[in-house]
Design a protein around this nucleic acid. Structure first.
Lengths: 134, 134
DNA sequence: CCGGATCCAGAGGGATACTG
DNA sequence: CAGTATCCCTCTGGATCCGG
């Protein structure tokens, strides 16, 4: 019998690729960037430090779970800094780091491409949905 | 009673934001870019046209469902072109479009940032996971 | 005030079988 | 060869309650 069935082989290759993806820097960045709330958080912090509750109000669509989770992830990646002031009700401030700031131009580039080409994309979609072949 | 409970208000704001996201060009692009297979497909087609089965072999981790779905989405967005040759076994070729090519520099920029800064991120993560506060 | 823990629904992704 | 249709399962994201 063969060492591996076709299905097993495919599965292994998929696993290998997933393992590769987990290592791939580009994909890690993409994963971060495309996170639903990351862009908002970074944008909110671009102007200066903010308190948790402040962010929560600004990014009003996010549940605290998601906001906290997003902030933790960004903090872990060194993209923003968390400062706890042990006053009586605790006070927590978040601030974008130098590393985090280097990400802003990338976001701008993406935004720029998107704004420049989105109409072409929309036209292509409209044509496709009409059933145009050429 | 109040017009809206706090929960209802939050829900509405979340819906509004989701609606906004669906319209936001930047996020649409991010959604495309961060799709698990898009990068691979675009990269595979950067050198020239390819047949479906060829792509399937190159991107061996993807199921046909995912490959087809990815190709369809990219075709719909006008990022690549699909050519059907009605020979006896049907032949389908995929080719990147001019619009699709303008995306490659963005991918490169992302890749570049990632490769340049990933070590800082990894160090930050290691420090964070060790429990370093500062 | 900040956020951890738990539970739950819905979307995304995959295996398999079938069609032109 | 190049898909389409179906079922299933994991994984993300959100609500809610609880603790420091």
């Amino acid at each position: 019998m063969a060492t591996l069935s076709a299905a097993q082989l495919r599965e292994r290759q998929r696993d290998e690729y997933n393992a590769f993806l987990a290592q791939c820097p580009g994909h890690q960045l993409l994963a971060t960037l495309s996170d639903k709330w990351v862009t908002l958080v970074l944008a909110a912090l671009a102007d200066g430090p903010r308190r948790y509750s402040d962010l929560s109000r600004t990014i009003s669509g996010a549940s605290q779970k998601m906001l906290t989770q997003t902030l933790r992830k960004l903090e872990r990646d060194g993209l923003l800094a968390r400062t706890v002031t042990p006053s009586v009700p605790v006070r927590v401030d978040y601030e974008i780091t130098a590393l985090g700031r280097t990400l802003l131009p990338i976001q701008q580039a993406i935004k720029h491409w998107a704004e420049t080409h989105i109409e072409q994309v929309h036209r292509a979609r409209a044509a496709y949905d009409r059933g145009d072949a050429g």
